[in-house]
């Protein structure tokens, strides 16, 4: 009844495995949770994963202070409570937080602008990790840079903690239009775009030159980010642009995030081409988290079926009060370009 057993070497942490993980959460909702009890509610509602956090973005906004990776006891408690994947956020550029999260066993790291930035120049070189990363992007250039750095999944940044969907919509429009416009670019123009996108990695070197008070150009073989020289970065970014142009979509799974608070918000983002939704403060800052969580799960899957949407959007109680995104004092989306 059985056949031969093949126990040849196993491969861990490959790009296929990282991207594959992102494929498995498509069509689902990833919910911010701050403790085991909330994680259980999220899982029971049908969340496809939870994001372990110390405070939801709305509270980070309200309370201020430095926002860091969540406490490890808290993440561990959540890891032990649910069987769905557990993600956690680390600060932009904070290799050590990411390494700790990887060692703890979280399934995906969100290198997130919702937390205070740790590095003013660079994001993490995510290729150095065995577990996959998700990163936010406001437009194509940010997405291409994050993909170059090894992000397995992308999301809009939106404006976290506001409950206002306008910024997520803006970012998705910018992404879609950016990708569509690639079709109208010649190879030469694409090269120029790749150079412009790559130049963001030169900020540190340029600042050092400024301090030298000499004028010096960055050369092709100058190492500007981690182990990569300027030419390599330009070439790799051009390749990602070419692939994006050909596919007419990002070569990574792309979710909506930042300001999604209702089932209708989730359906709106899905109709714009997002492949799933992150909900932060929207669930546990509402009057009936259980019901709202379930409704957002249904709306994300059945985004194109108005009859189901109408049913699930009923009797949800009060949504999070929120803040108009244009009125917020600290704009989180500007973190990390």
């Amino acid at each position: 009844m059985t056949n031969t057993i093949d126990t040849e070497g196993k491969i861990y942490g490959s790009e296929t495995l990282k991207k594959g993980f992102a494929s498995m959460v498509k069509g689902g909702v990833i919910m911010d949770v701050t403790n085991a009890e909330q994680a259980k509610i999220a899982e029971d509602a049908g969340a496809v994963a939870v994001m372990a956090l110390e405070r939801v973005p709305a509270d980070i906004r309200a309370e201020g202070g430095v926002a860091r990776m969540a406490s490890l006891e808290k993440i561990d408690e959540i890891l032990k409570t649910v069987t769905i994947p557990v993600m956690a956020k680390c600060r932009i550029g904070h290799y050590s937080e990411a390494r700790i999260l990887e060692t703890l066993g979280v399934d995906m790291v969100d290198e997130s602008e919702v937390l205070t930035m740790a590095d003013p120049f660079f994001h993490i070189n995510k290729k150095k990790f065995k577990i996959p990363f998700v990163c936010g992007a406001r437009e194509l250039g940010e997405a291409v840079r994050r993909i170059f750095e090894g992000a397995a999944m992308m999301r809009t940044k939106g404006e976290a903690g506001t409950g206002d969907v306008i910024e997520a919509v803006r970012h998705m429009h910018m992404m879609n239009e950016g990708i569509a416009q690639l079709k109208n670019l010649s190879d030469e123009e694409m090269q120029k775009v790749a150079v412009n996108y790559a130049n963001k990695y030169c900020k540190l070197t340029q600042e050092v030159y400024e301090k030298f008070e000499i004028s010096k150009e960055i050369k092709e073989d100058d190492v500007v980010f981690d182990e990569y020289n300027y030419k390599y970065i330009k070439d790799e970014i051009f390749k990602i642009l070419e692939e994006t142009k050909k596919l007419q979509r990002l070569p990574r799974v792309n979710f909506a995030a930042g300001g999604i608070a209702t089932p209708a918000d989730a359906a709106l983002m899905m109709n714009m081409g997002c492949e799933g939704v992150f909900v932060g403060s929207g669930i546990f800052k509402s009057s009936d988290p259980k019901k709202r969580a379930k409704a957002i799960v249904e709306a994300t899957s059945h985004y194109n079926e108005p009859k189901i949407l109408k049913e699930v959007a009923k009797n949800l109680g009060e949504g999070m009060k929120g803040t108009e995104a244009s009125k917020v004092i600290e704009v989180l989306q500007n973190r990390g370009i």
Partner: peptide, 9 residues
């Protein structure tokens, strides 16, 4: 968990 995900022939 995900870090134990693998490819094999």
């Amino acid at each position: 968990r995900q870090r134990e995900s693998f490819e094999a022939d």
